[in-house]
Amino acid sequence: MTTQRSDATTTTAPPPAGGAATPDASGPIGTGSRGTRILGLATLAGIALAAYLALVSSPDDENMGDVVRIIYIHVPIVVVAYVGCMITTLGSVMYLWKKSRWWDVTAAASAEIAMVTTALTLVVGMCWARPTWGVWWVWDARLTSTAMLLLLLLGYLAVRRIPAESGARSKRASIVGVLLLPNVIIVNRSVTWWRSLHQDTTILNTLQPKIHGDMAFALYLAIPVALMMFAWLLVHRWRLAWLEEEVLDHDLDQAITDRRAEAGFDARSTTVDIGEATS
């Protein structure tokens, strides 16, 4: 596998010999790029607009009052969580099929964002539940399924962090990832069926606020804004995940070179730089 030399906007100086002991600023530092800066600014503008619509200009709900303004976060965030899960499953399938590292990193990055947003969904949902129903939590189908989704994602992320060789880790993680969507569906069906036997109808009504007019517009704007934010987070988290693997590889190469130097080998003649061998 070859990595192409990154073409930064600045001039590239030759890398110091024998591995970088001092940080080399000739390549990109960090995970930002022109594209992500534009995306980030657009997202911030979108968030500002969505927040204004949600908090200031839209009316309050007839039943819920101002508490409905929590829905303008809750629904977009849960959409992001679901999209994240689907990307993780897709990435896992593609990794098992094509053995592509790109897809593996995508699955990992997307899963972490999905986990954060799922946890956030639950917390925001609890903030909504308390004033509406008087309790922080009810065991209704949707909340329970979302809690289970969080656990499934935590399991996936735990597999991603196991101390093992990266190919083994990716394979195990992708098996878990492939099963993520089926598990979510099976658990959701079971929980929904279970709770449908006990459903309190008053709760059922308040769970679906009637959204219309200005309120609908605020919500329908908030969802794409949230997806833009997801895209920004995904690109950055992807690059970060890539860097984490590169650091591990690099440290490993460095350790091997150091051990060989201790044993008396000349580092330059025995380590093969794949980039140099193929360019």
Partner: peptide
């Protein structure tokens, strides 16, 4: 911590 050529995909 990584040489410049390895920093990005």
């Amino acid at each position: 911590r990584v040489p410049p050529e390895d920093r990005r995909w």
